[in-house]
Design a protein around this nucleic acid. Structure first.
Lengths: 163, 163
DNA sequence: GATGAAACGATCATTTA
DNA sequence: TAAATGATCGTTTCATC
């Protein structure tokens, strides 16, 4: 791990701007945070080197891709031991309908967020992929009506209004 | 909504590449999908106009930002009616620890993914922010051990090996 | 869908505060 | 130590084929 970096107000403004719009170019980003482009670029690179910025991704619309139905699968994996859990994680992440996977401390051990074509498809996935596996002791399925992504994550104690 | 777009193998390769690395430049992207840069740019812009690509974001490491503890809060909002639900959603999305919010069909109505400083902070959030509200009938809290993001979401029926 | 040229932005060495 | 300047280099973008 890179040693912790002291983030000042400018760094936080940069993080807020980039989480809102990762495609903003360096020149415009520099203007919004009142820095020269070269200085701004150096700040962004420092945030990358420090591991605070971990990557850039495009977001896609699952519905427009032909996956209009989303669901959460709550799972119990038993026995809950590494030799079973690690391959299970690999399995889930290799499935094309998987969006996110959580390992939880709680009565259900895992949560899988999937995006599928239809209710039939979902049924097939639950029955054929999940309940068919020996280590999966329980599957509880919840449809997702809607999902929101909060704009940007900032350090504790920052008032976004003051930026 | 823009009319549906017929996606060919090249479009899908572009979507896969951009979801893996949203920061790849157009010239390199063009090379990986075997197109001229101008043609590739036009493809990407078409995907944007069609609403298939919805945005670009940087990803940050919550731990490095001072939010090393993540949790899921499962909530019941009662009565489950628009005049209560809409302001509740606004409320959750305005909180700085919120990462994602799901509206579910199931015994619990909402799921909030939060990133916090500490167990104390989490306790304060659950008790002071959530259970203090009249419309929140129940809060169940699960710690997140780990979270995975599947590389890229593609249309059904695509074999990623053939790309 | 490709080519090629013009316009623009990223980047870095250097300078300044 | 941190930021700005300015030149160079590479990329984006668009008219054209």
């Amino acid at each position: 791990m890179t040693p912790d970096l002291k983030l000042d107000t400018t760094d936080i403004k940069i993080l807020a701007a980039l989480q809102n719009n990762g495609r903003i170019n360096n020149k415009d980003l520099a203007a919004t945070v009142h820095l020269a482009p070269s200085t701004c670029l150096e700040r962004v690179n420092r945030l990358r080197r420090a591991g605070i910025i971990t990557g850039h991704r495009v977001e896609v619309d699952p519905e427009k891709l032909g996956r209009p139905l989303e669901a959460l699968l709550f799972l119990q994996v038993r026995p809950h031991k590494r030799p079973l859990v690690d391959p299970f994680v690999e399995f889930v992440l290799s499935q094309p309908e998987t969006r996110y996977l959580y390992h939880l401390a709680g009565p259900e051990d895992f949560l899988v967020h999937v995006a599928v074509e239809s209710a039939n498809d979902l049924q097939r996935i639950v029955l054929d992929k999940y309940t068919a596996r020996d280590e999966i002791a329980l599957v509880r399925t919840n449809l997702v009506f809607q999902r929101w992504n909060r704009a940007s994550l900032l350090p504790p104690g920052i008032d976004p209004a003051q930026l």
